[in-house]
Structures are given as structure tokens and as C-alpha cells.
Write a protein that binds this DNA or RNA. Structure first.
Lengths: 243, 243
DNA sequence: CGGCGTCCTTAACTTTTGTTGGAACCGGGC
DNA sequence: GCCCGGTTCCAACAAAAGTTAAGGACGCCG
């Protein structure tokens, strides 16, 4: 994979959400990135760790999570190529949660100092990355609402819908279907329910002809019903520079 | 209230969490602020609004929330004097949630342009505000875990505990008690449970001699039990500049 | 000081979700 | 081909939380 392809998804995403000048793009392209491969289901950055670099997802799916004293785990967000899930570590020096892979991944590591220097040199770039962390924050807010207020079937539909919208941006939705490589255990951890209940809910959505979930791939069977159930308003994704 | 007192809580909070140079402090003190008074239970910034200023809480309690199609409301965070709950509106132009008062409040409004100019002039100040929005984000992550994984009594204890830690920073904890001016309806909205169930949980904590909640004031009856129940690890508040 | 509205409180009942335990399925390694 | 481990799937039962309904406390205002 040529070096510019590595950065392409990142630039494309930042461009669509924030707008970038040519010089900004050039500067971002010039950032040194160390590429590493990780197998599926592997921690990348640990809770409690003091990070000195950020992690760009080049290929594969990741998730962020926190584990509480009782051993229960909550998935906080899902991440796809072009995203930097731990950008926050730039200023929050010790990690308060974990970043791990869901599938096998190609990840690019960008040094904190390099990023900070770029920000001082080009405040406009800093603002774009700041905005990116704010969108991340907006997604957490919606995740709170999802887990706090929606019944389990709507929760699942909403998470699927959000993932689809984000995958669409990077051209990864194929007709009525897209990837969502989580086990039912992980789906439960994302929705704040048990794996058994996750299974019930998945079955229910299948039986009602709304969505099919098989082998880490979602297929929407009835778009109208899916929309109704998900109760999705994508404003919180702030996908346009003016929103 | 003299002008420096208005800014005092903000500076104090930023100082303890990030460290500020004297020049930075002077610049922040110099920001023009328009003070306004709001009654209790009043929206300050609406969902969908395009904001041109940020809101500093000088006195009183606020909350952020989102309302879904079914009419259910989820409280996302509580806010106390010295905080700028809608700092994110600097770069997320249209609000994806609502900011409203819980009690009657004295609020100070700071123009976006003034802030942006300050950031360009002093990148170090920008970084401190950026970090502040990242801490906000970290609090959302913990809120997700709370609502998603903890049983209702632990949820309540955890929210109380977080509020106490933050109030402590601004010198607002009096012995074993502190303010938490929410109705049981609002507590339910914060914890993702119904008001009736919130009442059950509050009663349970009282009967077990853990905490008393009366007239918007929390009194901790048994610190040990309270700690155990809340399962609180304050790292996510990132209260020290190095954390 | 009496009436009104909001909040708090409680009980009885329903629904959702969790728990336990086990069977079927499936892919990868031997 | 066959075993093994992880996932998926399912049912029966238990616990947690939601719903509905109604009485009581309290402060505010006329």
C-alpha cells in the first residue's frame, strides 16, 4: 500500500467534516507514520497507559472500552479506517480506557510531538483535529442516549445505523449490507445488555424482517422499518463543515 | 460580584487540571464576558441552535440533555460554577443537545470570535481549552459505563461521587454533604431509569444507611459503603496536569 | 390560612432483562 | 475426516425495572 493511500482515508474524512486547504493536506500527508499490523481481538493501547503516539486506523475495525471492578465491560465506540480513536491522548496523558482491535488491523502510529509541532505551525490544522475530537465527544453523547433511553432493539438498530453512515463516508457500504464484525458478546457490551439478550434481540429483528446479522455482516431487509426503529438523526455526526 | 471573581472559578479549575502561565491567566481574565441571570429549569442553549458564544457558569447548576422522538430525555452531564459546558460549540456549530439550568443561575457569555482570536494569539491557551473539552469527553465515557453496566443503586452513587469530587475542587463540599439539586424525575433521566425506580433506589440507599438525599442535598452516611457501592475511580477526571 | 401544584412516596402488577444450562453449528488444526 | 473451542441459539426461571394509580408532604400564592 503506497504511503498516500495510507493517509487517504484520514484526509478524506477530515475534508468532508471540516474542509482543508491544500497546504493543510500537504502537511498532514507529510506526517511520519509507523505502520504496524495487529491480529483480531488485541489491545492496542491499555487503560492506564501513558501514550506518546496516536493511532490511525488504516485497515480493519477497532473498539474502545472500559472495564469496571465487577469485570463487566462496556464498549464506548466502534472505529473504522481513517479514524484516530485515541487522538485525545495528545492532551489526556494517561489513558482512561482501552483501545483494541476487533478484526485484524493495519494501524499507523503518529508521534505526539510531531502532531503538536504541526499544530503550532498551522493553527488551522489544530482546529480541524480539535473539531475531530469534538465529533468524537458528540458520538459519546448519542451513545449515552442510546444506552440510557432506548429499548434494546432500537439500541441495536441505532448502532447499526450510525456505523452504516460512517462506513458510507469511506465507501464501504455495499447495497443493503455492510460490515459489523462483532460477536454477540461484544454487541451486548456495546448496548449494555447481556449476550443472551443480544441474541434475543438479533433474532427478533430477523423475525420481523428488519435486519439480518450474519457473520459480522449486516443486511437491511426493510429500510423503512429499520429507519423507524433506529430513531436516527445524524446531526450529531457533524459531517458537514458548517454543522 | 467583582469582575475577577466571575473568572476566578474558571481559572482555578483550568489551573488545577492543566497548569497556566501568568500571561495565560491574564489573557483569560481579559476576555469580555456578558453576565445574565436565568431562573431554574430554563433552557440556555437549544438543541439545533447555531451558537455564537459560550456559556461560563458563574453561579448555580446546569445540565446538558438530549430528547429522543419518543419524548424521553437523557441527562448527559451536570455542570457547576467555573465550567463552560458548551465550549464544544466553538467548532461544532449547530448544537446537538440542549443546555439548561437546574437552579437559578448567573451565567457569563463569551463570544466565539474573542475565544478564537485568543487561541490564535496564544496556542498554549488553546491547548488548555482543548484539553478541557477532552476531559468533558472523558466524563461522557464514564457516563456511558455508568448507564450501561452498573445496577441502578451503583449508578446513583457514582453520579453523586463524581459530583462531589468536582464540587470539592471549587470548595463546595461541606463535611459529609453537598448540593445535588435534581428532582427524582431528573435523577431518573440522568441514570436512564424511571422516576419511580429512582425513588426506590434513593429509599434503598437511605434504608441501608449509605446516603441521604433530601431537598437537593446529599449527605453521606457511611463513607466506606458509599465508596464500595460507587465503584469510583477518579482518573477519568484528569484533575492533575500530568494525568 | 386555605387551595393548588409539584414533588415525593408507595403499592400492585407487567414487561424487560438477566441467569443458568444446555444443544447445535462452524471453522481451523491435526 | 474428526475433534475442539468458540460462537450462536434457545428455553425456563429469577431479578430488575417499567407502568399505573393514588395518597401525602410541602411550598407558593391569592
Amino acid at each position: 500500500m503506497p504511503s498516500d493511500t495510507i493517509r487517504a482515508a484520514l484526509v478524506r474524512r477530515l475534508e468532508s467534516s471540516s474542509g482543508l486547504s491544500e497546504e493543510d493536506v500537504a502537511e498532514i500527508q507529510a506526517l511520519p507514520i509507523a505502520v504496524k499490523h495487529y491480529p483480531a481481538e488485541t489491545p492496542v493501547v491499555h487503560d492506564g497507559e501513558r501514550a506518546s503516539e496516536c493511532c490511525l486506523i488504516i485497515e480493519g475495525f477497532c473498539a474502545r472500552s472500559k472495564t469496571i471492578a465487577s469485570g463487566k465491560r462496556q464498549i464506548l465506540s466502534l472505529h473504522i479506517p481513517g479514524e484516530i480513536p485515541d487522538l485525545m491522548s495528545l492532551f489526556l496523558h494517561v489513558m482512561d480506557h482501552e483501545l483494541s482491535t476487533l478484526t485484524s488491523c493495519k494501524l499507523g502510529f503518529i508521534n505526539h510531538d510531531a502532531l503538536r509541532k504541526l499544530h503550532r505551525r498551522r493553527p488551522a490544522v489544530a482546529e480541524i483535529f480539535w473539531r475531530d475530537t469534538l465529533i468524537d465527544s458528540a458520538m459519546f453523547r448519542e451513545w449515552i442516549v442510546n444506552v440510557g433511553q432506548r429499548p434494546a432493539p432500537a439500541r441495536l438498530a441505532h448502532v447499526m445505523m450510525e456505523l452504516r453512515e460512517r462506513l458510507r463516508l469511506i465507501g464501504r457500504v455495499e447495497g443493503a449490507s455492510f460490515e459489523m464484525p462483532l460477536t454477540q458478546e461484544q454487541i451486548g457490551e456495546a448496548l449494555g445488555i447481556t449476550a443472551v439478550h443480544a441474541n434475543r434481540v438479533i433474532r427478533q429483528l430477523r423475525e420481523e424482517g428488519i435486519v439480518e446479522l450474519h457473520r459480522g455482516r449486516v443486511t437491511v431487509l426493510d429500510e423503512r422499518k429499520f429507519l423507524d426503529l433506529a430513531d436516527f438523526d445524524g446531526r450529531y455526526l457533524h459531517q458537514s463543515p458548517t454543522s
